[in-house]
Design a protein around this nucleic acid. Structure first.
Lengths: 341, 341
DNA sequence: TTGTAAGCGTTATCAA
DNA sequence: TTGATAACGCTTACAA
């Protein structure tokens, strides 16, 4: 019940100093004599002072809030990214206001308005719902992750290299036909690079390949059904041939693997599988899945690094507006496990 | 660059009203004439006003912030719970300040201090690091989820019933021996109920059973190793018998299943497996896993329901302090898939 | 129905 | 090295 309502005024009264001096104790202690510092320190303990940052925000305009908009936390990629972003608190001290948007532009706009109303200093978004041009107009530092990023700063995995790595690995294991399954990704989304990387390696090496750009469904059941149909298709089209399949992510790669396992009790010699992300499912699969790993922790840290420097710039007397968005590319790491030779 | 610094004062000047009237327009519009409402509405558009909630917080003391402390986002159970909690924004309007603690008490205390400094109105914690007695002393409404909860309100799955459901299902499928693997959980943690429920069913029905209370390791590799050793142990101790195994969670149940699959190319007839949580891995396993499902969305909503009523109580003129913590129990849902008959 | 004035808890500016 | 005083943007009595 004795809600701690001790303020600078109380401390000032208690110590005989002014509120200003108390404020200085917190923000520039060296400007006080050691003796007086001690007096105030003692008073803080005696009165059981708890800081109130709201007053500081109002007076200084600095909230130390960063907004995060994330499509969902269902996919491990997103939850782990959030995990890593939250972990940067130790390094940068920014607090995170988190919204999980569900890809509806009007909803996300509402979230952003709300975040802005709390004077967030920066925004990190993993959602591609709102065009970067619109985000840039909000006039707050923004960093996008794995989304269209023409007008905002961003951090992305080197998707092209990921596609190259996957195709190269499949090439090495002497597949007769390389297959890449993915959805039909717009060119301005970073993930599109995977397809290009895969195709380029195939073309350069004159490897037979097939690109299957199709939507695998929104539920697990749909995934299962459509991937099962794909297996039928492969069996029919390439009987007896060694098929190297690069799936769009580990979740789908796992479904693919399970279907083969259920049919054959093992991974047939005629299949090689590689996923994308290095999410937990890739290690927890019946047979550990080979995958192109994203360096989530590195991405999260780079994002905060870019954001914090832009936020710092704004605090200067004469902030120099960013002329060009910064785009950082993080290399993926090929992880060879048991579904490739 | 034209950072919107339009305030109530500007609107007041523009419209000829006082700041108070502008404030009323937002908080109690009906107290203005329709005509004047319209005037102000027009001014808002003309001036491109953006609300600033910091001033409101300072003046009213109401932040509409709820703090969340979550052990990690790596385990699906936690990330999905966070997901569902964040989703309550639509219903309650509270914004969430999220910290991912890593089970270090001093770190978590720092997080709580920080949250308190921002005047959070309530706290939801999924972490059991700090004793409920200490949390209760912070003098802010707290709801715990699946953690020790003697001195704080809480929402938990009916773990006892979960244990009962698991044992009953294994009983129905005529197992010769029922086995429950779990860690040695302190009695005051809700999850301990699972063990009791399991044992009670076995005792009441005079079913042979074995309780294996052991730590399965902190990494996936350790899990794999120790669970593999368990399988050896089962084979040796109960050769040819039909073993019904209740694992502590889906992740471990999946590891168990994979080991059997790798050894036998299928789930042998002598095994029945049931997990706990109904996390995605249970459906994505080689063979869909039977599991005791936690109703995460229900839990999240109940938690916010309890919290919001306690927060609302505090806003009353003469708030009546909660005499007794509220404890809500959510029944689990048994999900029968292919690892049980 | 509307206005005045006094806060809310800090920081910033200027002066001493 | 310290203090007085005025912000910061809004809410809330109390008046009118």
């Amino acid at each position: 019940m004795k809600s701690n309502k001790v303020t600078f005024a109380d401390i000032a009264a208690y110590t005989g100093f002014s509120k200003t001096t108390i404020s200085r104790y917190f923000n520039d202690p060296d400007s006080l004599t050691l003796e007086n510092q001690q007096k105030i320190a003692d008073a803080l303990v005696a009165l059981d002072y708890k800081e109130n940052k709201v007053g500081r925000i109002l007076a200084s305009g600095k909230t130390e809030f960063v907004g995060i908009i994330i499509p969902n936390l269902y996919l491990h990629y997103y939850s782990e990214m959030l995990n890593q972003i939250l972990a940067t608190y130790e390094k940068y001290g920014y607090k995170f206001l988190v919204f999980a948007g569900n890809a509806r532009a009007d909803v996300e706009r509402k979230y952003i308005e709300e975040l802005l109303a709390y004077n967030i200093e920066g925004l990190i978004t993993l959602s591609g719902t709102i065009p970067s041009k619109e985000l840039a107009a909000y006039n707050v530092p923004v960093v996008g992750i794995e989304r269209e990023d023409k007008y905002i700063s961003s951090v992305n995995t080197d998707n092209y290299m990921g596609g190259v790595q996957a195709a190269s690995l499949l090439k090495k294991s002497d597949c007769d036909i390389l297959i890449h399954v993915n959805s039909d990704i717009p060119d301005d989304v970073p993930a599109a690079g995977r397809i290009k990387g895969f195709v380029d390696v195939c073309e350069e090496n004159a490897l037979p390949y097939e690109l299957i750009l199709t939507h695998l469904g929104d539920t697990f059941e749909e995934n299962r059904e459509r991937i099962s149909a794909l297996v039928d298709q492969f069996e029919e089209k390439y009987p007896g041939k060694k098929k190297g399949v690069f799936m769009p992510n580990d979740t789908h790669a796992n479904v693919f693997l399970n279907i083969l396992f259920q049919r054959y009790g093992k991974l047939p010699e005629t299949y090689q599988i590689i996923g994308f992300d290095n999410s937990p499912i890739s290690r927890e699969a019946v047979i550990p899945l080979s995958t192109v790993g994203q360096q989530i922790s590195v991405i999260a840290n780079e994002a905060m690094d870019i954001l914090s420097s832009q936020m710092a710039e704004r605090k200067k007397r004469r902030p120099e507006p960013l002329k060009e968005p910064v785009h950082k590319i993080i290399p993926p790491i090929l992880i060879r496990r048991e579904t490739t030779a």
